[in-house]
């Protein structure tokens, strides 16, 4: 059972956590977008989570889209491990936390990722309503933060107040000095009600369920994948915004002075060149094969078993960002049609 506290204001909690930590929170840019942003000291703006997950998930805060791995001066290799100050991500949704747990497995041995991860306190946020386009409940996820995937869980109560759930030792220590009062007993019932509400809002998501079944049964004909491939422009948008995508490519450039800088940059498996071999043979030579591979990685049985969860958390970002209208819903609808 989680410890639960009554919280008078999330802003007070945020200000408390900011002592000794850098705070990042999603903020609107006034142009229609939301971004993770470092808050200035003393920032007192009201905590207002975005109406849907921002295009950029928490992924780049750990798996940087571009970072130096090492430098080679012709004689010696020099590592480029980042120096990370303690920080707190304030108000991460359940889907993004679930994706982060997936990335934690992928990057378990990656010191660049783990340094950032170790220094970050995660404050999750329970969604009381489904976002437009979200389908977390259809892919084994939930709008409620999984207690193993955050340090603290913030939730807005039905009657307007706030509850703070303590999900880890680090979370407990971080708020100990606040001496928050015990929450009323009804918070578990409220969580159940939120889940039911979001389930109802998201509906059956029949095309997602049928699409997953078709992928797992390998019953989608190659022609259908190729028809989808024709709509894939290879823009890399889906893999960039997907919170569980983790592929990267090397970028080596000579610096002034002659040393070689080896960076890694986000890659996309939808590019032709992603798997092209030196002989120019390509195991995924057609766009259809690449689209198929992408979705097998999200819903294929082997991946689900290895990671203990689907590689899709139901955030719906790919639907938003795909110029060919073949995000999750577009693809699943087309492959599940008879």
């Amino acid at each position: 059972m989680l410890a639960a506290h009554k919280l008078d204001s999330p802003e007070r909690l945020r200000a408390h956590l900011a002592q000794g930590r850098e705070v990042q929170e999603m903020r609107a840019d006034g142009q229609g977008g939301w971004h993770w942003q470092n808050l200035a000291a003393g920032d007192g703006l009201p905590f207002e989570p975005p109406p849907r997950p921002p295009l950029t998930s928490a992924k780049p805060l750990f798996f940087a889209e571009r970072e130096a791995l090492f430098r080679f001066d012709g004689g010696t290799f020099y590592g480029c491990l980042p120096e990370i100050e303690p920080k707190v991500l304030f108000g991460v949704s359940a889907c993004d936390l679930r994706a982060l747990a997936y990335q934690d497995q992928f990057f378990a041995q990656d010191e660049h990722y783990q340094r950032r991860r170790r220094q970050t306190l995660l404050v999750g946020y329970d969604c009381g309503h489904s976002c437009a386009g979200g389908f977390c409940t259809a892919v084994g996820g939930s709008p409620l933060v999984n207690q193993t995937q955050a340090d603290l869980i913030l939730r807005r109560n039905g009657h307007g107040g706030w509850t703070l759930l303590v999900a880890s030792q680090a979370g407990a220590e971080a708020i100990a000095a606040l001496a928050l009062p015990q929450a009323p007993e009804d918070w578990t019932a409220e969580r159940d009600a939120d889940l039911a509400q979001v389930r109802a809002e998201q509906g059956a998501q029949a095309e997602i369920t049928a699409g997953i079944a078709a992928i797992q049964a390998a019953s989608v004909e190659p022609e259908r994948w190729e028809a989808l491939g024709l709509r894939c422009l290879g823009c890399s948008g889906c893999t960039s915004v997907c919170p569980t995508c983790s592929c990267y490519a090397p970028l080596e450039q000579r610096e002034e002075g002659g040393a070689l800088l080896h960076e890694r940059v986000w890659d996309s498996c939808l590019y032709t060149g992603f798997q092209k071999e030196a002989s120019s043979h390509n195991p995924a030579a057609t766009a259809g094969q690449r689209v198929q591979r992408f979705w097998y990685h999200k819903f294929g049985t082997a991946f689900a078993e290895r990671f203990g969860a689907y590689g899709c958390v139901g955030c719906g970002r790919c639907d938003v960002v795909c110029p060919g209208s073949i995000g999750a819903h577009g693809v699943m609808t087309r492959i599940s049609r008879p």
Partner: peptide
């Protein structure tokens, strides 16, 4: 270090 589409 990166680019994203402007929502809206």
């Amino acid at each position: 270090i990166g680019v994203e589409p402007q929502a809206g």
